[in-house]
Amino acid sequence: MDAEQEVTGRTPGVDVEASRRALAGIEPTPGVAKPDPILVADSVTRTFGGLTAVDVAHLEVQRGVITALIGPNGAGKTTLFNLLTGFDRPDTGTWSFNGTSLGRKPAYKVARMGMVRTFQLTKVLSKLTVIENMRVGATAQRGESLLAAMVAPLWRSQEKANTDRADNLLERFLLAEKREDFAGSLSGGQRKLLEMARSLMTDPELVMLDEPMAGVNPALKQSLLGHVKSLRDEGRTVLFVEHDMDMVRDISDWVVVMAQGKVVAEGPPDTVMADPAVVDAYLGAHHDAELTFEEEEKILAEAEAEIQKEAQGHE
């Protein structure tokens, strides 16, 4: 359905079909090496107080395909996103993008390298119009330097080109009608669309979407799915966090499962969904055995102790 859509920007000669085929022969075990990884992370850990939020031994993300990152709440998916994109600093670990190490690189530099993210709680610029939101996304703007800013002729032509590109994207993401509206007036789903479209203004190689479907009404979901697929089809790599299993099964080429900060499984969608380790991760190890009264008490006491510890850690 997206085959006719305009393919813009950097399409670094990725043969999508080849990339997908390359994944076929890979053994579905956690931390397995990929034939052409765009993103590689090694022993990345992050703790908050006593809680280990992320503890990833090894992870590779294949170029040119859609990789889903799934796991129960609190598995550390968003924290991992923050770490990889420079929004948070890990306690240990190294990670690289296209072979360049990203350790201690600030978030804006990571974004400039072509690795752009969206947020779980959508971050649109409410008091700016939709088209202004889009324009902010464009990179290397001459008019963004203080001295050139005051001399409009220096940046006007570039601004025009960026606006054209933005209008094309708005058209594609069905937001053209909202062009002059304040972004704050958009619905939740439209905000997700705007955020995604805006991130494309930076012309990224790797797009990282944090729960793109959360809070989106079912009618919009299908079109969003199409958009994510179209990203891959124009040669970009997609890594996304999602809870909606139908979506994961529908569009992803590869699935990585996290639980309690660790990568517990990865593989093609069908294989992973059938993996008992994944079912355990989602429903907890005790899901099939009835809890005895003592066990229940014990679990409650543990939870209580943890809350206490947490509370003390705050003071």
Binding site: A107, Y108, K123, L125, S126, L128, V136, G143, A148
Partner: peptide, 25 residues
């Protein structure tokens, strides 16, 4: 002059949400 320029647009964006601006490089 400053506020109608892309420079001013970045400032206004920072006012709205600086993490979003950071994520755009």
């Amino acid at each position: 002059l400053l506020m109608r320029s892309p420079w001013g647009r970045v400032l206004k964006s920072i006012r709205e949400d600086e993490d979003a601006v950071r994520s755009l490089g």
